[in-house]
């Protein structure tokens, strides 16, 4: 099934083209746009972007798979990404990861059966001074505790 950007995303893509001396520089921004539009970077999205940029799907695929943020498979409505690196670990991240895992009944890397949450352990989110930290979709949540995690996840619609 082929996919296409909405009018707004298409306009943003055209605007991006004016910001670089080389067309291929829009590959990363276009992949971000695709993920926002379609929820993840599907095979069809790869083919579509290749057509827009004017290169092969293989090249787009090669780029997309290099970067951890591009989801090549669907993720839940809320992508819970919790930092497992050193500053967060020193302040209890391991325990928090176990807590979320038990609470949502998924292991890291898995999605809840209702498609609401995907849990992922990630590397440093660059917010070590307010550790432990997780990112839910675009939003950072800092100074995490078991209680604050419960509050944050429970109130998501």
């Amino acid at each position: 099934m082929s996919v296409a950007f909405s009018e707004g995303a298409r306009a943003e893509f055209e605007r991006l083209l004016t910001r670089y001396p080389d067309r291929k520089a829009v590959i990363l921004p276009a992949l971000h746009l695709a993920q926002k539009e379609f929820g993840f970077v599907s095979d069809d999205a790869i083919v579509y972007i290749a057509g827009l940029v004017g290169t092969s799907p293989a090249e787009i695929e090669g780029v997309a798979t290099f970067y951890t943020m591009f989801n090549r498979k669907p993720v839940g409505k809320y992508h819970v990404q919790i930092c497992r690196n050193i500053s967060c670990s020193l302040l209890g991240a391991e325990h928090l990861i176990e807590h979320i895992s038990e609470k949502l009944r998924v292991r890291p890397g898995e999605t809840t059966p209702d498609g609401k949450f995907t849990l992922t352990k990630v590397e440093c989110l660059g917010s070590c001074g307010t550790a432990p930290v997780m990112q839910v979709n675009d939003e950072y949540h800092e100074h995490l505790t078991v209680e604050s995690i419960d509050r944050i996840l429970d109130q998501l619609p």
Partner: peptide, 29 residues
Amino acid sequence: LDVTVHRGAGAYICGEETSLINSLEGKRG
């Protein structure tokens, strides 16, 4: 002068300047 904000996509290596340049050009970092 033109200034443009460009977002990376999750790769520590792109903090290395030549990797960052490749990434900016739309390549693997």
